[in-house]
C-alpha cells in the first residue's frame, strides 16, 4: 500500500508540475491582457513537434533549447499580428480568435507532420532508473522533469517579484497607462509576455513529448485541464496556479491509484443492488474510471462557490 502511495505521489507531482509549466504562461498572459488563451496548449504541442524534428538532426538537448525559442517567436507573432488586431473587437472576439488558432494549429500540425504518432525519444543520457523502490523503477527522465519545472517556478517567481523587468510587468498589469506614460512600450511588453508564456508552454511540450507521446491530439487532451487549473487557482495568480496544478495532478493520480468505487460506499452503508438495476452504471462506477473528469467537477464547484478561485483577488 505504501509503495502505491509513494509512486502515486511522485506521478502526481510530475503531472502537476508539467501542468504548472503550461498554467504559469497562461495565467501570466491572462493577468496581462485579460484574455484566456485557448491556443495555449497548442503551443505546447508545437513545442513537442519542433523538438521532435530538431532531435532527429541535432539531438534532444538542442531541441530543448531551440524549440521553445521558435515557439516563443511564433507566439509573439500571433500576438503582434493577430491578437492585437482582434483586441479592438472586444474580449469575446479575442477568446474566439484563440479558439480558432487552437483549431488551426492542430490542423497545421497534421498537415506538416501527419496524423501519426511520432517516435520522439527521451535522451539516452537520462535513460536509467533514478532509484528503485519496492521493486519499482523511477525513471531519471521523470526526475529531470521535476527539476526543470521547479527551477522554472523559482526563476519565474524571482523574475516577477524581484527583477526590474518583473516590476514593470506587474505595473503594466494593473496600470498600463501609467507605465506607458513613464516611457515604457506597453504593447511591446505585452508581446514579450505572450512570447515568454508560449515559450514556457513550448518547454513543457519538449519535455512532455517523449513520455506523453507526440500526436496531434495532445493539445486537446491537456488544453481544457490547463484552463481548469488557471481558473481554480484564481485567474492571474502564479502561486494559485502552482497550488492548483499540484492539486489536480495529485488528485488524478490518487484517484487512479485507489480502487474505491460506489459499490464499496454502498457496502459500507449496508446497501446492495443487483447488476440489472436500471442505474447499474452508477453503482459500478469506480474512482479510477472518473479520475479524468474530476478536475471539471472541481472547476464547476469552485466557480459556483468561490468564483475568484483559490488565490484570485479579482473577479473577471
Amino acid at each position: 500500500m505504501l509503495e502505491v502511495f509513494i509512486f502515486a505521489t511522485l506521478n502526481g507531482l510530475v503531472t502537476g508540475l508539467l501542468l504548472f509549466m503550461l498554467a504559469s504562461g497562461l495565467t501570466l498572459i491572462f493577468s496581462m491582457m485579460g484574455v484566456l488563451n485557448f491556443a495555449h496548449a497548442s503551443f505546447y504541442m508545437l513545442g513537442a513537434y519542433f523538438a521532435y524534428s530538431i532531435s532527429l538532426y541535432l539531438g534532444f538537448w538542442a531541441g530543448l533549447i531551440f524549440a521553445p525559442l521558435i515557439v516563443g517567436v511564433l507566439g509573439a507573432l500571433v500576438e503582434r499580428y493577430g491578437l492585437r488586431r482582434v483586441h479592438q473587437s472586444g474580449h469575446v472576439a479575442e477568446l474566439v480568435f484563440t479558439f480558432g488558432m487552437a483549431f488551426l494549429i492542430e490542423e497545421a500540425v497534421q498537415f506538416f507532420w501527419g496524423p501519426d504518432t511520432k517516435n520522439y525519444q527521451s535522451p539516452d543520457l537520462l535513460d536509467f532508473p533514478l532509484f528503485t523502490l519496492f521493486g519499482q523503477e523511477f525513471p531519471a527522465y521523470r526526475g529531470f522533469m521535476i527539476g526543470i519545472s521547479i527551477s522554472i517556478f523559482i526563476g519565474l517567481y524571482y523574475l516577477l517579484t524581484r527583477s526590474r523587468v518583473g516590476i514593470i510587468i506587474q505595473a503594466a498589469i494593473t496600470h498600463p497607462h501609467t507605465v506607458a506614460n513613464l516611457g515604457h512600450n506597453v504593447p511591446f511588453i505585452f508581446m514579450g509576455v505572450f512570447g515568454v508564456g508560449t515559450a514556457l508552454a513550448g518547454i513543457a511540450g519538449v519535455i512532455a513529448g517523449p513520455i506523453l507521446t507526440t500526436f496531434p491530439g495532445m493539445a486537446v487532451v491537456l488544453g481544457s485541464i490547463v484552463f481548469v487549473i488557471v481558473v481554480i487557482g484564481g485567474l492571474g495568480s502564479l502561486v494559485g496556479a502552482f497550488i492548483a496544478s499540484l492539486l489536480i495532478g495529485l488528485l488524478q493520480s490518487y484517484a487512479i491509484a485507489s480502487d474505491v468505487g460506489v459499490q464499496d460506499l454502498l457496502n459500507v452503508l449496508g446497501l446492495e443492488f443487483d447488476r440489472n438495476h436500471p442505474l447499474t452504471d452508477l453503482w459500478t462506477l469506480t474512482l479510477p474510471q472518473v479520475a479524468p473528469i474530476l478536475p471539471f467537477l472541481l472547476l464547476v464547484l469552485v466557480l459556483i462557490f468561490r468564483p475568484t478561485g483559490l488565490m484570485g483577488k479579482r473577479e473577471q
Binding site: F227, V228, L235, I293, F296, L297, L299, L303, Q316
Partner: peptide
C-alpha cells in the same frame, strides 16, 4: 456571472456531461 466565469462553467459542464 457573465464573461469568463460563465464561459468556464459552460466548459466544465460540457466536459462533465460529455464524459
Amino acid at each position: 456571472k457573465a464573461g469568463t466565469v460563465f464561459a468556464m462553467i459552460s466548459l466544465g459542464i460540457g466536459e462533465l456531461i460529455a464524459a
